[in-house]
């Protein structure tokens, strides 16, 4: 599996003045090198990494942050019928400092963008971003002067959830995809172990994964009956 490396203390990060800060490069799975060096420490690190990632992905604390319509569907996912606590992500935090991930649920406005950046900066590592809905993904139907055409113009996004707005189920699927990618991540186990970069796995495209199955559909349900 290919990985994207973002170094924590990258000199380039200090010089770059455009968000998202830091330089990203494509690399191989760092664990592979470990295995070649020493089978024992390589395996040990893999086990430790998996255990830490397992803990991280199953207690994701979302930041209570909403912009527009999508936030209503996101809140719907938090409530009883959808029950996000099944995935360990029900501890909503009102402060970015206590949150693990931020869902950009709604339109990213030019006036709001610096505020979003500020809130993102206030979150502590490890942190992730889900972009929820067409507006946050790409501007969606709002190709208009006051809207940033996608929050990834300045934030590093981990998962994109399509829809306008996406159903709560779609958001929950996005959350599970984030969990899957967290399981594959390679982060330093401590500030003295290993190199201090974040390796994010490049997860397979969902569209390609499901294409064969989706293309099989030949008959769509009629809208003429409930």
């Amino acid at each position: 599996m290919a990985y994207t490396l973002t170094r924590a203390d990258d000199a380039a990060a200090q010089q770059s003045d455009r968000y998202p800060l830091g330089e990203r490069q494509r690399v191989d799975d760092p664990m592979k090198q470990q295995v070649h060096r020493s089978v024992f420490t390589g395996k040990l690190e893999e086990v430790l990494n998996s255990a830490v990632n397992w803990g991280r992905k199953n207690s994701l604390w979302p930041y209570n942050f909403g912009l527009s319509c999508c936030y209503v569907e996101m809140t719907t996912a938090f409530t009883a019928p959808h029950d996000i606590s099944r995935f360990g992500a029900e501890v909503i935090r009102a402060s970015p400092r206590q949150a693990d991930f931020m869902v950009v649920a709604g339109t990213c406005f030019v006036k709001m963008a610096p505020v979003i950046q500020q809130l993102y900066d206030q979150m502590l590592e490890p942190k992730w971003v889900i972009s929820m809905g067409s507006c946050a993904n790409s501007g969606g139907m709002y190709d208009i002067y006051s809207v940033v055409q996608g929050v990834d113009k300045f934030l590093p996004v981990d998962v994109y959830v399509p829809g306008c707005p996406p159903r709560p189920e779609a958001f929950l699927q996005g959350l599970q995809l984030l969990q899957d990618s967290i399981q594959e991540e390679r982060r330093p186990l401590s500030w003295v172990v290993g190199d201090q970069g974040v390796y994010r796995a490049e997860m397979p495209s969902q569209r390609e994964k499901h294409r064969d199955q989706r293309i099989q559909a030949t008959e769509l349900r009629t809208p003429d009956s409930v």
């Binding site: 003045d17 455009r18 968000y19 800060l21 030019v110 963008a113 610096p114 950046q117 500020q118 501007g139 709002y142 190709d143 208009i144 002067y145 006051s146 809207v147 940033v148 055409q149 113009k153 300045f154």
Partner: peptide, 28 residues
């Protein structure tokens, strides 16, 4: 003034949005 007829409507009619460290400080 956006609602004037001579003001552009689309975001894609001008340069893509970028946020710089300096711009962030200025906006804040």
């Amino acid at each position: 003034h956006p609602l004037r007829k001579d003001h552009h409507a689309r975001a894609t009619e001008f340069d893509p949005y970028t946020l710089t460290v300096e711009g962030q400080d200025k906006e804040q």
